[in-house]
Write a protein that binds this DNA or RNA. Structure first.
Lengths: 212, 212
DNA sequence: ACTGCACGCCGATCTTGACCTCCACTGTGC
DNA sequence: GCACAGTGGAGGTCAAGATCGGCGTGCAGT
Protein backbone atom coordinates (compact mmCIF):
# COMPACT_ATOMS: atom_id res chain seq x y z
CA UNK A 1 0.00 0.00 0.00
CA UNK A 2 2.18 2.81 1.22
CA UNK A 3 4.81 2.30 -1.40
CA UNK A 4 8.40 1.89 -0.34
CA UNK A 5 10.84 4.00 -2.24
CA UNK A 6 10.25 2.79 -5.73
CA UNK A 7 7.70 0.13 -4.83
CA UNK A 8 7.33 -2.65 -7.35
CA UNK A 9 9.88 -1.51 -9.80
CA UNK A 10 9.74 -1.81 -13.56
CA UNK A 11 10.99 -5.15 -14.69
CA UNK A 12 13.08 -3.72 -17.48
CA UNK A 13 14.89 -1.20 -15.32
CA UNK A 14 16.89 -2.79 -12.55
CA UNK A 15 17.78 0.36 -10.67
CA UNK A 16 21.27 0.41 -9.30
CA UNK A 17 21.58 1.96 -5.86
CA UNK A 18 24.50 2.89 -3.64
CA UNK A 19 24.85 0.59 -0.66
CA UNK A 20 23.56 3.05 1.92
CA UNK A 21 20.41 3.87 0.02
CA UNK A 22 19.80 0.23 -0.80
CA UNK A 23 20.12 -0.67 2.84
CA UNK A 24 17.61 1.90 3.91
CA UNK A 25 15.23 0.75 1.24
CA UNK A 26 15.60 -2.84 2.34
CA UNK A 27 14.89 -1.86 5.93
CA UNK A 28 11.75 -0.02 4.86
CA UNK A 29 10.52 -2.98 2.83
CA UNK A 30 11.29 -5.37 5.67
CA UNK A 31 9.38 -3.21 8.11
CA UNK A 32 6.29 -3.25 5.95
CA UNK A 33 6.38 -6.99 5.52
CA UNK A 34 7.19 -7.75 9.15
CA UNK A 35 4.38 -5.53 10.35
CA UNK A 36 1.87 -6.89 7.88
CA UNK A 37 2.73 -10.57 8.26
CA UNK A 38 4.56 -10.92 11.55
CA UNK A 39 8.04 -12.28 11.87
CA UNK A 40 7.36 -15.93 11.27
CA UNK A 41 4.94 -15.59 8.40
CA UNK A 42 7.18 -13.06 6.68
CA UNK A 43 9.40 -14.78 4.16
CA UNK A 44 12.67 -13.40 2.96
CA UNK A 45 11.32 -13.84 -0.55
CA UNK A 46 8.45 -11.51 0.32
CA UNK A 47 10.81 -8.85 1.61
CA UNK A 48 13.06 -9.12 -1.40
CA UNK A 49 10.12 -8.96 -3.76
CA UNK A 50 8.67 -6.00 -1.89
CA UNK A 51 11.96 -4.17 -2.27
CA UNK A 52 12.21 -5.11 -5.91
CA UNK A 53 15.48 -7.00 -5.50
CA UNK A 54 16.46 -10.62 -5.22
CA UNK A 55 17.31 -12.56 -2.11
CA UNK A 56 21.10 -12.57 -2.48
CA UNK A 57 21.09 -8.80 -2.24
CA UNK A 58 19.29 -9.08 1.04
CA UNK A 59 21.93 -11.44 2.36
CA UNK A 60 24.66 -9.13 1.14
CA UNK A 61 23.31 -6.48 3.47
CA UNK A 62 22.17 -8.54 6.45
CA UNK A 63 23.58 -11.84 7.71
CA UNK A 64 20.15 -13.33 8.29
CA UNK A 65 16.50 -12.81 8.97
CA UNK A 66 16.98 -12.32 12.69
CA UNK A 67 19.67 -9.67 12.26
CA UNK A 68 17.45 -7.81 9.84
CA UNK A 69 14.62 -7.88 12.34
CA UNK A 70 16.84 -6.77 15.20
CA UNK A 71 18.25 -3.92 13.17
CA UNK A 72 14.71 -2.70 12.60
CA UNK A 73 13.77 -3.16 16.22
CA UNK A 74 16.80 -1.24 17.44
CA UNK A 75 15.91 1.62 15.15
CA UNK A 76 12.57 2.14 16.86
CA UNK A 77 13.07 0.93 20.40
CA UNK A 78 14.58 4.08 21.76
CA UNK A 79 12.02 6.36 20.13
CA UNK A 80 9.10 5.70 22.46
CA UNK A 81 11.26 5.72 25.57
CA UNK A 82 12.76 9.02 24.53
CA UNK A 83 9.30 10.48 23.99
CA UNK A 84 8.17 9.49 27.45
CA UNK A 85 11.38 10.87 28.92
CA UNK A 86 10.79 14.14 27.11
CA UNK A 87 7.26 14.20 28.42
CA UNK A 88 8.63 13.94 31.94
CA UNK A 89 11.36 16.52 31.52
CA UNK A 90 9.34 18.96 29.46
CA UNK A 91 7.42 20.34 32.40
CA UNK A 92 7.22 20.17 36.15
CA UNK A 93 3.43 20.20 36.26
CA UNK A 94 2.45 16.61 36.89
CA UNK A 95 -0.90 16.91 35.19
CA UNK A 96 0.91 18.17 32.13
CA UNK A 97 3.32 15.29 32.45
CA UNK A 98 0.53 12.74 32.38
CA UNK A 99 -1.03 14.46 29.39
CA UNK A 100 2.26 14.61 27.56
CA UNK A 101 2.98 10.96 28.26
CA UNK A 102 -0.37 9.86 26.97
CA UNK A 103 0.12 12.10 23.97
CA UNK A 104 3.49 10.48 23.41
CA UNK A 105 1.88 7.07 23.14
CA UNK A 106 -0.88 8.27 20.87
CA UNK A 107 1.58 10.18 18.72
CA UNK A 108 3.67 7.09 18.39
CA UNK A 109 0.66 5.02 17.46
CA UNK A 110 -0.73 7.65 15.15
CA UNK A 111 2.33 8.62 13.21
CA UNK A 112 4.40 5.47 13.51
CA UNK A 113 1.82 2.77 13.83
CA UNK A 114 4.09 0.41 11.94
CA UNK A 115 6.88 0.81 14.45
CA UNK A 116 4.38 0.47 17.25
CA UNK A 117 3.06 -2.81 15.97
CA UNK A 118 6.59 -3.98 15.32
CA UNK A 119 7.56 -3.45 18.93
CA UNK A 120 4.39 -4.20 20.84
CA UNK A 121 2.86 -6.94 18.74
CA UNK A 122 6.03 -8.81 17.99
CA UNK A 123 5.57 -12.54 17.68
CA UNK A 124 9.14 -13.11 18.77
CA UNK A 125 8.93 -12.27 22.44
CA UNK A 126 10.11 -15.78 23.16
CA UNK A 127 13.44 -15.09 21.55
CA UNK A 128 15.85 -13.84 24.21
CA UNK A 129 17.34 -11.06 22.10
CA UNK A 130 13.96 -9.66 21.12
CA UNK A 131 12.50 -10.16 24.57
CA UNK A 132 15.37 -8.23 26.08
CA UNK A 133 14.82 -5.27 23.79
CA UNK A 134 11.06 -5.13 24.20
CA UNK A 135 11.26 -5.48 27.95
CA UNK A 136 13.90 -2.79 27.96
CA UNK A 137 11.45 -0.46 26.27
CA UNK A 138 8.70 -1.10 28.76
CA UNK A 139 11.13 -1.00 31.65
CA UNK A 140 12.46 2.30 30.33
CA UNK A 141 9.02 3.87 30.14
CA UNK A 142 8.05 2.54 33.54
CA UNK A 143 11.32 3.73 35.05
CA UNK A 144 10.90 7.24 33.69
CA UNK A 145 7.46 7.51 35.28
CA UNK A 146 8.50 5.70 38.42
CA UNK A 147 11.08 8.30 39.34
CA UNK A 148 8.56 11.08 39.08
CA UNK A 149 6.01 9.16 41.12
CA UNK A 150 8.53 8.50 43.85
CA UNK A 151 9.79 12.04 44.10
CA UNK A 152 6.29 13.51 44.09
CA UNK A 153 4.37 11.03 46.21
CA UNK A 154 6.96 9.33 48.35
CA UNK A 155 5.61 5.85 47.89
CA UNK A 156 8.06 3.01 47.87
CA UNK A 157 9.88 2.14 44.68
CA UNK A 158 8.11 -1.18 44.24
CA UNK A 159 4.74 0.48 44.63
CA UNK A 160 5.67 3.28 42.28
CA UNK A 161 6.81 0.79 39.69
CA UNK A 162 3.56 -1.09 39.85
CA UNK A 163 1.59 2.13 39.52
CA UNK A 164 3.75 3.21 36.62
CA UNK A 165 3.22 -0.11 34.90
CA UNK A 166 -0.50 0.37 35.31
CA UNK A 167 -0.38 3.83 33.78
CA UNK A 168 1.81 2.66 30.94
CA UNK A 169 -0.52 -0.25 30.32
CA UNK A 170 -3.53 2.02 30.24
CA UNK A 171 -1.96 4.37 27.72
CA UNK A 172 -0.57 1.56 25.64
CA UNK A 173 -3.73 -0.52 25.53
CA UNK A 174 -5.99 2.46 24.98
CA UNK A 175 -3.82 3.72 22.15
CA UNK A 176 -3.78 0.28 20.62
CA UNK A 177 -7.54 0.02 21.01
CA UNK A 178 -8.01 3.41 19.40
CA UNK A 179 -5.84 2.37 16.49
CA UNK A 180 -7.46 -1.05 16.09
CA UNK A 181 -10.90 0.52 16.14
CA UNK A 182 -9.97 2.59 13.13
CA UNK A 183 -9.41 5.93 14.87
CA UNK A 184 -13.15 6.36 15.35
CA UNK A 185 -12.55 9.37 17.53
CA UNK A 186 -10.40 12.49 17.11
CA UNK A 187 -6.94 11.86 18.46
CA UNK A 188 -7.03 14.83 20.82
CA UNK A 189 -10.30 13.63 22.27
CA UNK A 190 -8.98 10.15 22.96
CA UNK A 191 -5.82 11.58 24.46
CA UNK A 192 -7.80 13.86 26.73
CA UNK A 193 -9.99 11.02 27.90
CA UNK A 194 -7.13 8.68 28.74
CA UNK A 195 -5.12 11.49 30.27
CA UNK A 196 -8.06 12.38 32.50
CA UNK A 197 -8.44 8.75 33.55
CA UNK A 198 -4.76 8.45 34.35
CA UNK A 199 -4.45 11.78 36.07
CA UNK A 200 -7.44 11.22 38.31
CA UNK A 201 -6.04 7.82 39.13
CA UNK A 202 -2.59 8.97 40.12
CA UNK A 203 -3.15 12.55 41.26
CA UNK A 204 -4.40 11.97 44.78
CA UNK A 205 -1.96 9.25 45.65
CA UNK A 206 0.27 11.02 48.14
CA UNK A 207 -2.77 11.81 50.27
CA UNK A 208 -3.46 8.24 51.24
CA UNK A 209 -0.34 6.44 52.32
CA UNK A 210 -0.95 2.77 51.71
CA UNK A 211 -0.34 0.37 54.55
CA UNK A 212 2.07 -2.48 54.00
CA UNK B 1 8.95 -28.44 36.31
CA UNK B 2 5.36 -28.71 37.50
CA UNK B 3 5.02 -32.31 36.49
CA UNK B 4 2.20 -33.33 34.21
CA UNK B 5 0.21 -36.29 35.44
CA UNK B 6 2.86 -38.98 35.41
CA UNK B 7 5.66 -36.88 33.96
CA UNK B 8 8.37 -38.78 32.09
CA UNK B 9 7.00 -42.22 32.48
CA UNK B 10 8.90 -45.40 33.06
CA UNK B 11 10.04 -46.93 29.81
CA UNK B 12 9.05 -50.43 30.79
CA UNK B 13 5.50 -49.50 31.79
CA UNK B 14 3.46 -48.16 28.87
CA UNK B 15 0.50 -46.98 30.92
CA UNK B 16 -2.83 -47.55 29.26
CA UNK B 17 -5.24 -44.65 29.70
CA UNK B 18 -8.88 -44.13 28.74
CA UNK B 19 -9.29 -41.68 25.90
CA UNK B 20 -10.65 -38.88 27.98
CA UNK B 21 -7.84 -39.01 30.49
CA UNK B 22 -5.22 -39.36 27.78
CA UNK B 23 -6.61 -36.32 26.02
CA UNK B 24 -6.49 -34.23 29.14
CA UNK B 25 -2.96 -35.36 29.78
CA UNK B 26 -1.94 -34.47 26.24
CA UNK B 27 -3.48 -31.04 26.62
CA UNK B 28 -1.59 -30.49 29.84
CA UNK B 29 1.69 -31.54 28.28
CA UNK B 30 1.04 -29.37 25.24
CA UNK B 31 0.30 -26.40 27.45
CA UNK B 32 3.58 -26.75 29.28
CA UNK B 33 5.57 -27.00 26.09
CA UNK B 34 3.72 -24.22 24.31
CA UNK B 35 4.14 -21.87 27.22
CA UNK B 36 7.78 -22.71 27.72
CA UNK B 37 8.82 -22.65 24.07
CA UNK B 38 6.16 -20.69 22.25
CA UNK B 39 4.09 -22.08 19.43
CA UNK B 40 6.69 -22.10 16.71
CA UNK B 41 9.60 -23.41 18.72
CA UNK B 42 7.45 -26.15 20.24
CA UNK B 43 7.79 -29.39 18.32
CA UNK B 44 5.21 -32.11 18.28
CA UNK B 45 7.98 -34.49 19.26
CA UNK B 46 8.57 -32.45 22.41
CA UNK B 47 4.92 -32.58 23.36
CA UNK B 48 4.70 -36.30 22.76
CA UNK B 49 7.85 -36.91 24.73
CA UNK B 50 6.66 -34.69 27.55
CA UNK B 51 3.46 -36.70 27.74
CA UNK B 52 5.34 -39.97 27.59
CA UNK B 53 3.61 -41.17 24.45
CA UNK B 54 4.51 -41.34 20.80
CA UNK B 55 3.50 -38.99 18.05
CA UNK B 56 0.81 -41.16 16.42
CA UNK B 57 -1.14 -41.04 19.66
CA UNK B 58 -1.05 -37.27 19.48
CA UNK B 59 -2.41 -37.33 15.97
CA UNK B 60 -5.12 -39.78 16.98
CA UNK B 61 -6.41 -37.16 19.38
CA UNK B 62 -5.81 -33.96 17.43
CA UNK B 63 -5.70 -33.48 13.66
CA UNK B 64 -2.68 -31.20 13.80
CA UNK B 65 -0.56 -28.80 15.75
CA UNK B 66 -2.83 -25.84 15.13
CA UNK B 67 -5.95 -27.66 16.28
CA UNK B 68 -4.17 -28.73 19.42
CA UNK B 69 -3.18 -25.16 20.12
CA UNK B 70 -6.65 -23.85 19.42
CA UNK B 71 -8.23 -26.47 21.67
CA UNK B 72 -5.95 -25.29 24.42
CA UNK B 73 -6.67 -21.66 23.71
CA UNK B 74 -10.41 -22.21 23.70
CA UNK B 75 -10.18 -23.93 27.06
CA UNK B 76 -8.75 -20.81 28.67
CA UNK B 77 -10.16 -17.98 26.63
CA UNK B 78 -13.52 -17.91 28.28
CA UNK B 79 -12.09 -18.17 31.76
CA UNK B 80 -10.78 -14.64 32.08
CA UNK B 81 -13.82 -13.10 30.42
CA UNK B 82 -16.08 -15.06 32.73
CA UNK B 83 -14.13 -13.86 35.73
CA UNK B 84 -14.50 -10.24 34.71
CA UNK B 85 -18.18 -10.78 34.04
CA UNK B 86 -18.58 -12.30 37.47
CA UNK B 87 -16.75 -9.35 38.96
CA UNK B 88 -19.29 -7.06 37.35
CA UNK B 89 -22.36 -9.07 38.30
CA UNK B 90 -21.20 -10.01 41.77
CA UNK B 91 -21.99 -6.66 43.25
CA UNK B 92 -23.59 -3.34 42.47
CA UNK B 93 -20.97 -1.29 44.28
CA UNK B 94 -18.73 0.06 41.57
CA UNK B 95 -15.71 0.35 43.80
CA UNK B 96 -16.14 -3.31 44.63
CA UNK B 97 -16.50 -4.03 40.94
CA UNK B 98 -13.18 -2.42 40.14
CA UNK B 99 -11.52 -4.29 42.97
CA UNK B 100 -13.01 -7.57 41.88
CA UNK B 101 -11.97 -7.03 38.27
CA UNK B 102 -8.41 -6.27 39.23
CA UNK B 103 -8.44 -9.29 41.50
CA UNK B 104 -9.71 -11.37 38.60
CA UNK B 105 -6.67 -10.44 36.55
CA UNK B 106 -4.25 -11.04 39.36
CA UNK B 107 -5.91 -14.34 40.24
CA UNK B 108 -5.62 -15.41 36.68
CA UNK B 109 -1.98 -14.44 36.53
CA UNK B 110 -1.23 -15.90 39.94
CA UNK B 111 -2.94 -19.23 39.71
CA UNK B 112 -2.93 -19.80 35.97
CA UNK B 113 0.13 -17.98 34.80
CA UNK B 114 0.61 -20.61 32.13
CA UNK B 115 -2.80 -19.92 30.64
CA UNK B 116 -2.15 -16.21 30.91
CA UNK B 117 1.07 -16.42 28.99
CA UNK B 118 -0.58 -18.71 26.49
CA UNK B 119 -3.26 -16.17 25.73
CA UNK B 120 -1.49 -12.86 26.12
CA UNK B 121 2.00 -13.72 24.92
CA UNK B 122 1.03 -15.92 22.03
CA UNK B 123 3.42 -15.82 19.11
CA UNK B 124 0.55 -16.59 16.77
CA UNK B 125 -1.46 -13.41 16.98
CA UNK B 126 -0.96 -13.01 13.26
CA UNK B 127 -2.86 -16.16 12.51
CA UNK B 128 -6.48 -15.20 11.86
CA UNK B 129 -8.00 -17.95 14.00
CA UNK B 130 -5.82 -17.16 16.98
CA UNK B 131 -6.10 -13.42 16.51
CA UNK B 132 -9.86 -13.71 16.49
CA UNK B 133 -9.91 -15.58 19.78
CA UNK B 134 -7.46 -13.31 21.56
CA UNK B 135 -9.19 -10.18 20.37
CA UNK B 136 -12.47 -11.71 21.42
CA UNK B 137 -11.09 -12.07 24.93
CA UNK B 138 -10.03 -8.46 25.17
CA UNK B 139 -13.19 -7.28 23.50
CA UNK B 140 -15.21 -9.36 25.93
CA UNK B 141 -13.48 -7.87 28.96
CA UNK B 142 -13.76 -4.39 27.58
CA UNK B 143 -17.41 -4.90 26.70
CA UNK B 144 -18.28 -6.13 30.17
CA UNK B 145 -16.76 -3.04 31.73
CA UNK B 146 -18.08 -0.75 29.04
CA UNK B 147 -21.69 -1.54 29.81
CA UNK B 148 -21.23 -0.72 33.46
CA UNK B 149 -19.46 2.51 32.65
CA UNK B 150 -22.19 3.57 30.30
CA UNK B 151 -25.04 2.80 32.63
CA UNK B 152 -23.37 4.48 35.60
CA UNK B 153 -21.77 7.52 34.00
CA UNK B 154 -23.75 8.14 30.85
CA UNK B 155 -20.75 8.78 28.66
CA UNK B 156 -20.98 7.76 25.03
CA UNK B 157 -20.25 4.18 24.08
CA UNK B 158 -17.07 5.03 22.21
CA UNK B 159 -15.75 6.97 25.18
CA UNK B 160 -16.72 4.23 27.58
CA UNK B 161 -14.97 1.66 25.44
CA UNK B 162 -11.77 3.66 25.40
CA UNK B 163 -11.89 4.11 29.16
CA UNK B 164 -12.57 0.42 29.62
CA UNK B 165 -9.63 -0.46 27.41
CA UNK B 166 -7.46 1.77 29.54
CA UNK B 167 -8.60 0.08 32.74
CA UNK B 168 -8.15 -3.36 31.24
CA UNK B 169 -4.70 -2.40 30.04
CA UNK B 170 -3.72 -1.12 33.44
CA UNK B 171 -4.82 -4.31 35.18
CA UNK B 172 -3.32 -6.53 32.55
CA UNK B 173 0.03 -4.78 32.35
CA UNK B 174 0.33 -4.36 36.09
CA UNK B 175 -0.45 -8.02 36.67
CA UNK B 176 2.06 -9.00 34.04
CA UNK B 177 4.64 -6.70 35.58
CA UNK B 178 3.99 -8.12 39.01
CA UNK B 179 4.42 -11.63 37.68
CA UNK B 180 7.52 -10.81 35.65
CA UNK B 181 9.10 -9.09 38.63
CA UNK B 182 8.85 -12.34 40.56
CA UNK B 183 5.88 -11.48 42.80
CA UNK B 184 8.04 -9.15 44.85
CA UNK B 185 4.98 -7.91 46.69
CA UNK B 186 2.07 -9.68 48.35
CA UNK B 187 -0.69 -10.27 45.85
CA UNK B 188 -3.33 -8.51 47.93
CA UNK B 189 -1.11 -5.46 48.21
CA UNK B 190 -0.57 -5.23 44.48
CA UNK B 191 -4.27 -5.73 43.84
CA UNK B 192 -5.18 -2.99 46.28
CA UNK B 193 -2.73 -0.60 44.69
CA UNK B 194 -3.93 -1.14 41.16
CA UNK B 195 -7.55 -1.16 42.26
CA UNK B 196 -7.03 2.18 43.98
CA UNK B 197 -5.40 3.61 40.87
CA UNK B 198 -8.20 2.42 38.65
CA UNK B 199 -11.00 3.37 40.97
CA UNK B 200 -9.71 6.89 41.50
CA UNK B 201 -9.32 7.19 37.76
CA UNK B 202 -12.82 6.13 36.85
CA UNK B 203 -14.83 7.08 39.92
CA UNK B 204 -15.35 10.76 39.34
CA UNK B 205 -16.11 10.50 35.67
CA UNK B 206 -19.81 11.29 35.61
CA UNK B 207 -19.08 14.60 37.30
CA UNK B 208 -17.29 16.10 34.36
CA UNK B 209 -19.23 15.55 31.17
CA UNK B 210 -16.79 15.68 28.30
CA UNK B 211 -17.68 17.73 25.24
CA UNK B 212 -17.98 15.84 21.97
C1' DA C 1 36.21 6.95 -29.17
C1' DC C 2 37.25 1.83 -28.23
C1' DT C 3 38.40 -1.95 -25.10
C1' DG C 4 38.99 -4.40 -20.90
C1' DC C 5 37.77 -4.56 -16.01
C1' DA C 6 35.28 -4.67 -11.87
C1' DC C 7 31.05 -4.76 -9.41
C1' DG C 8 26.41 -5.15 -8.19
C1' DC C 9 22.66 -8.01 -9.33
C1' DC C 10 19.75 -12.20 -10.59
C1' DG C 11 17.92 -17.18 -11.48
C1' DA C 12 18.28 -21.59 -9.89
C1' DT C 13 19.67 -24.61 -6.22
C1' DC C 14 20.79 -26.93 -1.51
C1' DT C 15 19.84 -28.05 2.93
C1' DT C 16 17.70 -28.06 7.20
C1' DG C 17 14.02 -28.82 10.12
C1' DA C 18 9.36 -29.72 11.35
C1' DC C 19 4.87 -31.64 10.47
C1' DC C 20 2.75 -35.71 9.47
C1' DT C 21 2.30 -41.40 8.45
C1' DC C 22 4.07 -46.75 7.89
C1' DC C 23 6.48 -51.58 9.83
C1' DA C 24 7.81 -54.30 14.03
C1' DC C 25 6.64 -55.38 19.19
C1' DT C 26 4.06 -56.28 23.48
C1' DG C 27 0.64 -57.49 26.47
C1' DT C 28 -4.21 -59.55 26.86
C1' DG C 29 -8.61 -62.44 26.35
C1' DC C 30 -10.45 -67.08 24.66
C1' DG D 1 -1.47 -71.54 22.31
C1' DC D 2 -3.37 -67.77 19.26
C1' DA D 3 -5.36 -63.59 17.30
C1' DC D 4 -5.53 -58.67 18.05
C1' DA D 5 -5.31 -53.93 19.39
C1' DG D 6 -2.60 -50.36 20.36
C1' DT D 7 2.38 -48.40 20.84
C1' DG D 8 7.07 -47.04 19.40
C1' DG D 9 10.61 -45.72 16.21
C1' DA D 10 11.97 -44.74 11.14
C1' DG D 11 10.79 -42.24 7.03
C1' DG D 12 8.30 -38.83 3.26
C1' DT D 13 7.16 -34.26 2.03
C1' DC D 14 7.39 -29.53 1.85
C1' DA D 15 8.30 -24.91 2.95
C1' DA D 16 11.63 -21.48 3.89
C1' DG D 17 16.26 -19.75 5.01
C1' DA D 18 20.66 -19.49 2.95
C1' DT D 19 23.93 -19.66 -1.24
C1' DC D 20 26.75 -20.22 -6.25
C1' DG D 21 27.71 -19.41 -11.46
C1' DG D 22 26.28 -15.95 -15.19
C1' DC D 23 24.92 -11.05 -16.92
C1' DG D 24 24.77 -6.42 -17.76
C1' DT D 25 26.42 -1.77 -16.74
C1' DG D 26 29.53 2.12 -15.70
C1' DC D 27 34.44 3.59 -15.78
C1' DA D 28 39.59 4.09 -16.72
C1' DG D 29 43.21 4.18 -19.77
C1' DT D 30 45.08 4.84 -24.43
Amino acid sequence: MTAVGNGAQTAGRPTRLPRSARRKQLLAAAQEVFVAQGYHAAAMDDIAERAGVSKPVLYQHFPGKMELYLALLDTHCDAIVAKVHDAMRGTSDNKERVGASVRAYFDFVDHESEAFRLVFESDLRNDPAVRQRVERVEQGCIAAITDTIISDTGVSRSHAELLASGLVGAAETAAQFWLAGGRQMPKAEAEALVAALSWRGIASFPLQGESA
